[in-house]
Computed example of a mutant assay.
Amino acid sequence: MTDNGLVTIASRFPVAETIERLMAAITARNMLVFARIDHAGGAAKAGMSLRPTELLIFGHPKGGTPLMQDKQTAGIDLPLKALAWEDADGKVWLTFNTASWVAERHGLDDGGAAVKAMDQMLPAVAKEATS
């Protein structure tokens, strides 16, 4: 499903395993993993509950830099991010922004090849992570 630039796909795996599989798919493509954030773990440390929810921040300067050279505000949406989360029924999902949405959001004039490459890569790594 797609909503406001977000793509959400079902995962056959638990949240942590989905993120591990995503990391493997990303690093196999010579991209960098910048951070892995365990939102549920953070909530627990604050004495709050949250179903499993993890964010992965990743990318490569060769992909993101052309977008920021065009409009530096694109840096608010870069590096790329993917969120693995478990819904109230125990189903796991992976959600990410499309690069074309980022380009539209920031009114990018250039970076067409980078946007196209990201829009092809994101569904591919998501599929590897979730199926």
Rank of each mutant, 00 (worst) to 15 (best):
D3Q: 04
N4S: 08
G5A: 06
G5P: 03
V7Q: 11
T8Q: 07
I9Y: 01
A10S: 13
S11W: 03
P14K: 06
V15C: 08
V15Y: 03
T18V: 09
T18C: 12
I19G: 02
I19M: 13
L22N: 00
A25R: 07
R29Q: 13
R29H: 12
M31S: 03
M31C: 05
L32Q: 09
R36I: 08
R36W: 00
I37N: 05
D38N: 07
A40L: 10
G41K: 06
G41I: 03
G42K: 06
K45P: 03
K45S: 13
A46L: 14
A46D: 11
G47K: 15
M48Q: 15
M48P: 07
L50F: 07
R51S: 13
E54L: 09
I57H: 08
F58G: 00
F58L: 04
H60W: 07
K62E: 14
T65D: 04
P66Q: 10
Q69M: 14
Q69H: 11
T73A: 15
G75A: 11
D77G: 05
L78K: 07
L80S: 01
A82S: 06
A82Y: 00
A82V: 02
L83Y: 02
A84C: 09
W85G: 00
W85H: 05
D87I: 04
A88T: 12
A88Y: 04
D89W: 04
G90Q: 08
G90L: 11
K91Y: 04
K91T: 15
K91Q: 15
W93Y: 13
W93S: 12
L94P: 01
L94E: 01
N97P: 04
S100F: 02
W101S: 04
V102E: 00
A103I: 07
E104M: 06
E104K: 11
H106R: 06
L108I: 03
D110Q: 14
G111C: 09
G111F: 03
G112F: 08
A113D: 11
A114V: 11
A114S: 15
A114G: 07
A117S: 13
A117Q: 15
M118V: 07
Q120C: 12
M121P: 02
M121C: 04
M121T: 13
P123R: 04
A124T: 14
A124D: 14
V125G: 01
K127D: 12
E128I: 02
E128A: 13
T130V: 11
T130F: 06
T130D: 09
S131M: 10
